[in-house]
Design a protein around this nucleic acid. Sequence first.
DNA 1: ACCTGAACACCGTTCAAGT
DNA 2: ACCTGAACACCGTTCAAGT
Lengths: 182, 182
Amino acid sequence: MRADARRNYDKILATARIVFTERGTDSSLDEIAKRAGVGAGTLYRHFPTREALVDALMQDWTDRVAADADTAIATEAPARDMLLGWFENFVDHITLHRGAASKICAAMDDPASPMYRKCRVMGDANRRVIDHLDATGELRPGVDAANVMRLVSGVASVADTSRAELDVRPMLEVVVDGIVRA
Amino acid sequence: MRADARRNYDKILATARIVFTERGTDSSLDEIAKRAGVGAGTLYRHFPTREALVDALMQDWTDRVAADADTAIATEAPARDMLLGWFENFVDHITLHRGAASKICAAMDDPASPMYRKCRVMGDANRRVIDHLDATGELRPGVDAANVMRLVSGVASVADTSRAELDVRPMLEVVVDGIVRA
DNA sequence: ACCTGAACACCGTTCAAGT
DNA sequence: ACCTGAACACCGTTCAAGT
């Protein structure tokens, strides 16, 4: 990659991070290009779709999500608390930029999405947590990790979409109770 | 309302129902106007926002949702089955038009939304089911009807957003297990 | 090889003119 | 009182011209 291309790529990404934080992942791409000081075509060259741009920003937090999974597994806390903490962290991460959670919900089961691979990384992290729960005999029979992922992402999406400042904890508690062995 | 106004109103609604069924609730409003044979301004006069249009179509299914709640309460089936059936019906109704579920998630906690009132009707129906569960001593302590509503709408939204033809049943089973007394 | 920005297409929304 | 449709604004996307 040529030096100026690299510089533009980085500038676009940094600007997108700011704009997405301010106004969410549905902000005008034109505004990002303008604020980054590049032509619209340059943005499209580097990021052909909005999802590709969101995907590039996701890198930061897929790492953190993976680390959170390990922390959750390693904890001595009761299964219920462990799960609740893990879910809350997960929701916090994917709702960092408004609109991201629902894009993740859509990408999760769509291999054609640019965000699919990173969704898989997060999905794998979640599966490790659920597998661990299973290994300690605390997973309710019939619960599937992929559906847990969808469910928790759904909670994130609801909180993200809502105008009100929702507390996701009560919803996550129901999910947790539905997952741990009765 | 003048006769021609009434006729246009009905024609727009009927067309919107068709277009929303074909292409979801984010279809072009201009296309609806064109296919209904009215000017764009006429559509906006009757339905100032897209949500107002969706809201008008919701009338059909809020009635059905309310009826479903009564059926659920009256059934002799075990609490778990009763709840699962109720949730499945609810999801079916609000995912009738693609994109509707997430709009409902957003409107549910936003009194300023045109759809708010109808969300309340559905919320009340759900509360009656949850109250009934509580009355028979089968509700897990601490579970709140409003959060159940948000959770199930979230499941609907995930299914609606997803490209894959998701089966919502496994997700709803987790929710049900989290709601009924352990 | 990469960048620019004008040009195009599409859509929501408004409003002056018409009935 | 209501309707029409041209006009405007905004935004995503492309591409010819430039470096």
